[in-house]
């Protein structure tokens, strides 16, 4: 081997290995030092400005302008820090305190930066902007979010749809419902959760969506109709027990657990007797209904497969005997 390999090459390899090791050690140290310095700087700014941010949440109407003026008068680094603190705190509070914090965010200059970032070239920055628009709700946020919900990048669309959950405007509800569609690129749980957050404002649209030609929209609407207690949706949910798509049928069953309807029992028994995971879900729905209704249906499940019987709460045969 050594004949094929001149000692110079070995020396060269050793040198390269040493250099690579050194470079990585330096990187390690540099990473850790800069991170520590950044954290220290943050802690210093926090010590100075935290009190101001907290006080804004309890300020009376007549005290607030003075506080906001103080924020506006600070240097860039301090205002950026305050913007960041407010952004984090807005995760935790609602109501009046949140409104106050949003005004501080505006005074710190965060809002214009976020608005500008909504048109940034990088998809990550646009997604960050969508998140911030939802939390800070500056002027024009709804329009920007509606635009971001049409972004070419699915990740940006997802964050925008989630952020639209903060808005009860009809346009926001309509856009979120559309995000339930199968090819929207937005996870269905995200869109459904946003609709839940919109709450009562979404009721009418959700009821209409139960008849949508798109299976994804039907499924999402069926899943949350019960959670939102959408008035007038019970009959539609019963109809969806016969839907072509299994996932839609399953979603309708989950909602019927919270909105019991007598007419659902007959189709549910049929599904339960067919067995499988869908059958189990049907059995669970039956078992969740008022006992005076469900008793005959449960009797009918006596001959169902054991998994379905378990889901319906029926006893083991040897235990029952």
């Amino acid at each position: 081997m050594s004949e094929l390999l001149p000692p110079e090459l070995l020396r060269l390899l050793l040198l390269a290995a040493a250099l690579a090791t050194l470079a990585m050690l330096v990187t390690l140290l540099a990473q850790r030092t800069t991170r520590r310095r950044r954290e220290r700087r943050r802690a210093e700014l926090d010590a100075i400005h935290r009190r101001l941010v907290l006080e804004s949440t309890i300020a009376e109407d007549d005290e607030l302008p003075a506080l906001l003026d103080r924020v506006r008068g600070l240097d860039d680094a301090s205002r950026a820090h305050i913007g960041r603190s407010v952004f984090m705190m807005l995760q935790d509070v609602t109501g009046e305190a949140a409104d106050r914090l949003r005004q501080v965010a505006a005074a710190s200059g965060l809002a214009p930066r976020v608005t500008a970032a909504a048109r940034h070239r990088s998809a990550v920055r646009r997604a960050d902007a969508a998140e911030a628009l939802g939390r800070l709700a500056p002027e024009g946020a709804l329009e920007l979010l509606l635009a971001l919900a049409e972004d070419r990048d699915p990740e940006v669309r997802t964050v925008a749809v989630r952020a639209l959950g903060e808005f009860e405007h009809e346009a926001a509800v309509a856009r979120v419902v559309r995000a339930l569609a199968e090819d929207s690129g937005v996870p269905s749980t995200v869109a459904a959760t946003a609709l839940l957050q919109q709450g009562g404002a979404a009721s009418d649209r959700v009821r209409l969506a139960l008849r949508d030609p798109d299976a994804g929209i039907r499924r999402g609407a069926a899943r949350i109709a019960g959670l939102l207690q959408v008035p007038g949706s019970a009959d539609e949910l019963v109809a969806l027990l016969h839907d072509d798509h299994e996932s839609v049928r399953l979603a309708a069953m989950r909602s019927l657990e919270r909105m019991p309807v007598r007419e659902a029992l007959e189709p549910l028994v049929g599904i339960a007797l067919a067995g499988g995971t869908t059958g189990e879900a049907a059995a669970r729905t039956i078992a969740s209904m008022p006992s005076e209704w469900s008793a005959p249906a449960l009797d009918a499940l006596d001959g169902a497969e054991p998994g379905v019987r378990r889901a319906a709460g029926l006893k083991r045969r040897e235990a029952a005997a």
Binding site: D92, V93, E96, A98
Partner: peptide, 8 residues
């Protein structure tokens, strides 16, 4: 529940 309203 969180997020909470300090006033509530």
């Amino acid at each position: 529940t969180k997020p909470f309203s300090p006033r509530a």
